[in-house]
Design a protein around this nucleic acid. Structure first.
Length: 246
DNA sequence: GCGACAG
DNA sequence: ATCTTGTCGC
């Protein structure tokens, strides 16, 4: 029984807006069967952060993907796209609200990043299909998630100092980690999205932590989409001038 | 019925 | 997520 049919169109752009929760759940279960958590196979040279910004009481979404060099973590390019969303925010179904626009930003990039970090979860999800995993399977790319709040599972609070972490489990299975990215701040929740292991997600997350609570990829993505929404940056694909990179 | 609940 | 001012801490 195919999940995709004439009644249920096959592209995020055209159909996610009209899905019922039951249909969305069916899609997540189907995508889960295609999920892969094999260890990273290729070296990471660029890592991107993906996020969207919204105006209060507006259905317009400002999506963006910011590519940073790795491991230096300097912004080298970014793709910004203005889109629309009608699918409401429902915990567990964030992908259906944000992916259509982020996908446009992704398709607009002439060169894709080696890995994309999402502002949300990967397998740290009831059905192991958070936005990072969803996007990864959909586009066959390497992804991981970094959420600011816990969505599912159980965990014990990690030590208060930077670098401490604990596992987030669901029925005894580890589905992610609660990572203290800075002293005395709430932990961030890390999990693999697609084509990488739990250990990989933890390793990458640590190498992306700078002076702030949020890892650089998602922190920059959040910053750029906000600048886009407020008019400081324009829609389109942009590359940072070489001279700004040293 | 009550608590949980990414953005 | 977004709307907002001051304020506490490193």
């Amino acid at each position: 029984m195919p999940v995709i049919s004439a009644e249920m169109p096959d592209t995020p752009e055209s159909n996610y807006d009209r899905l019922t929760i039951a249909e969305a759940t069916a899609i997540q279960k189907d995508l889960r069967s295609k999920l892969s958590l094999i260890p990273l196979e290729k070296p990471v040279r660029t890592i991107a952060g993906a996020d969207i910004s919204l105006s209060l009481y507006s259905q317009t979404v400002y999506a963006g993907i910011v590519i940073l060099s790795y491991p230096k973590l300097q912004v080298v390019a970014y793709s910004l796209v203005k889109g629309n969303t009608n699918f409401p925010y429902v915990p567990g179904y964030l992908a259906f609200r944000e992916i259509p626009s982020i996908l446009k930003a992704f398709e607009q990039m002439p060169v894709k990043p080696d890995l994309i970090m999402f502002d949300g979860n990967g397998i740290l999800h009831k059905r192991r299909m958070g936005i990072a995993s969803h996007f990864g399977v959909l586009t066959d790319t390497v992804t991981m998630g970094c959420a600011k709040k816990k969505l599912a599972g159980l965990y014990t609070e990690p030590g208060e100092t930077k670098g401490q972490f604990t596992a987030v489990t669901d029925s005894g299975e580890t589905i992610g980690f609660a990572v203290r990215s800075k002293n005395n701040v709430k932990p961030v929740f890390i999990s693999p999205g697609h084509q990488m292991s739990l250990q990989d997600s933890l390793d990458i997350a640590f190498k992306c932590i700078g002076k702030h609570r949020l890892p650089e990829p998602t922190r920059k993505a959040h910053e750029y989409v906000n600048l886009f929404r407020t008019g400081a940056l324009q829609e389109g694909y942009h590359e940072v001038d070489e001279w700004k990179l040293f």
